[in-house]
Design a protein around this nucleic acid. Structure first.
Lengths: 382, 382
DNA sequence: AATGGCGGTGAATCCAGGG
DNA sequence: GCCCTGGATTCACCGCCAT
């Protein structure tokens, strides 16, 4: 693993590359190029890297300030690097860096890009228009997303990644066995769950986060493990605080980072210097064992296990309630609420497990609605 | 719910609409229009529907169908088709139907589109370019996806939906409380899990599935419950076997379906005819507190729930205020104002819900004054 | 030493209605 | 249009500190 080298400008050849540069020289491995990403990419030889991982600006287009219900302020992404005047400007920027990514990639290399609904559709369109061939889109389900404080939309609980080869017929690396092993001998799916980056992993300086959008290492770990081999070269043109570099070093892949902000470069260099090969316990956390799925009662209504209007009773038939369209219950006396809430109201107890309290008639017998939940879990778990 | 009416062509006015048609007439409700989708949409009056749900063709590269910008079918699709031409044709088709969707939607209506990585990025770009404002992208996680048999990629286990309003400032319907209830009192997230459509729900004829991509009713159920009100009109320009219509009928929403294939139209008509609407009590959903009668704080003082001079504090007893005769509060530091105003002043936040911020002593315990309001509402409701 | 309460916070396109 | 005001609105995780 080469030393970390921070340079102030891309190499002098950058300008000449606008004409035609023979791809004879070698890319500077395990190095941060402190420069504008498009100029720096132009300085790299064609067909020299095995993967490009890109976490470009999302063009969030945020409005005013946002406050939590308790009155505290939400620290939003307001950095200048995320601001674009128009979609056209964003598209031009996207196509410029992505065209360079296509040039720099080896024929058997692949591109990964991450984004949110603000930008990912434009990114994906550019991916296709530039001749890349999409292999999968991947959903990063956040275990702990920020809620929607005003109750105006669905909680924005995921981000999207695109994985693409250089063309329809292009070969690419996919370590199928490694992914299947990582996923308890089941094929790895296109939806991945990870917590957002926080705790010890989150880089901080004077109590402040160093970068507003630092990605979790687990995400990069899975990507690099799935789609590169040891010794491969990964280029990250939006290096930030160097998550890609840190994980690449741990997995014995080479990396090249491009980052304009000196502060991010310094943080990344220090972080990667300190990165060590993963020990077994850290590996285990990366494996993200799957947990028992939570099944809301409303789900059983949606999928038709219980129809709205169905009648539920307790085991002694003392209480009775009707299922409503949204999964709430209504009792004849006018009380309404969730299965748990209505159970506790009627029983006049502080808490109630609605799953075992409420029953429905099935072949002449009363069965707790929990059996429906178990049936559902059994039917949908592989 | 009107009878199902299958027509062979869109109404005669369709052609004239290419010039300028005053939007005076009414859309044909609860009807299948057997016609090309763009032509049929042109026959509908402007600003006449509350939601457009669209499940357009997923694109072409799998040897499927190709459309010209006017929506007509292109027969000879060969492997030699230039990709750019293919994408350009699909984009033109997408923008054509989507522009009609924008025209047909009421100002407070919303658009839903579903797709996979083959087409969703182009669809999303069109959504933004046409001036729609994306509210969420939603991931449908398939509980039981088809495995990747060759082990060459990640299991393609999800599809993506886009939910958009007509513009950045446009209002829209979102039944927040119903969604929260449906999800066991947690905010509904942007990742939804449903099984793919199969079993009894899957329409079959002579052992063959009637439609290759029939969507599960649970998916439409959640969408319609979340983003429409009873009596609203939902237009589905790619009606297929009528999942949208069947669920709309069950939930007492009006629907309009456009479908070109007679076989699909017949299956949809039969299916919707058999669907049963929910009765009123089952259709009821948990309402937002907003829809409760408004009770001014001063009312509680007037009727003696709280006497002038009573002392209120916040939950941590950091702040303290005295109730005055007119229902305003006065703090010891001299500040005065409504329960909301004084709360925001003292907490130094831009807004504050005084009903939950302020507490009063009741049997030795602090209780939010909102409980008094709830008591009052319960006591005065018929 | 465990445990539990409390506070902080994260890529967020985050209000509605009346005067 | 604008301004003002009423009042609706949060989940999982991490770390600190008190018990």
């Amino acid at each position: 693993m080469g030393a970390i080298q921070t340079i102030a400008r891309p190499r002098a050849r950058a300008k000449a590359s606008e004409t035609l540069v023979p791809a004879t020289d070698v890319a500077p491995l395990d190095t941060i190029l402190m420069a504008d990403c498009i100029a720096a990419m132009r300085s790299l030889p064609a067909k020299s890297v095995d993967m490009v991982f890109a976490d470009p600006p999302y063009n969030l287009q945020l409005g005013g300030e946002l406050f939590r219900p308790d009155g505290s302020h939400v620290d939003a992404v307001t950095d200048d690097w995320d601001k674009f005047d128009t979609f056209a400007a964003y598209d031009a920027f996207t196509r410029a860096w992505m065209a360079e990514a296509h040039r720099v990639l080896k024929d058997h290399g692949t591109l990964w890009v991450i984004g949110s609904y603000h930008n990912i559709f434009r990114v994906g369109t550019a991916v296709q228009d530039l001749g890349f061939w999409i292999l999968n889109d991947i959903v990063w389900r956040k275990a702990n997303p920020m809620p929607n404080f005003r109750g105006t939309r669905f909680t924005n609980a995921h981000e999207t990644l695109i994985w693409a080869s250089k063309g329809e017929k292009a070969k690419y690396t996919f370590n199928y066995r490694a992914m299947k092993t990582l996923n308890d001998e089941l094929q790895m799916r296109s939806d991945w769950e990870f917590p957002i980056c926080g705790g010890q992993e989150r880089l901080k300086k004077a109590g402040q986060k160093v970068h507003p959008t630092q990605k979790p290492e687990a995400l990069l770990y899975r990507i690099l493990l799935a789609c590169t081999k040891p010794g491969d070269v990964v280029l990250d043109p939006f290096f930030g605080t160097g998550t890609t570099g840190a994980v690449a070093k741990r997995l014995k892949r080479h990396w090249i980072g491009i980052e304009r902000e000196p502060g991010y470069c310094a943080a990344a260099a220090e972080r990667i210097e300190a990165a060590l090969p993963l020990d077994e316990s850290a590996l285990a956390t990366m494996m993200s064992p799957r947990q028992q799925p939570k099944v809301p009662f409303g789900k059983l209504v949606e999928i038709g296990y219980l129809a709205p209007g169905a009648v539920l009773v307790d085991d002694k038939r003392r209480f009775r309630a009707v299922v409503r369209a949204d999964g709430s219950l209504a009792s004849p006396c006018g009380l309404t609420g969730s299965i748990h809430k209505l159970g506790s109201l009627l029983r006049q107890s502080p808490a109630c497990n609605g799953w075992t309290f409420w029953h429905h008639e099935e072949q002449g017998a009363l069965k707790p609605i929990d059996t429906l939940r178990q049936t559902y879990i059994l039917a949908t778990q592989p």
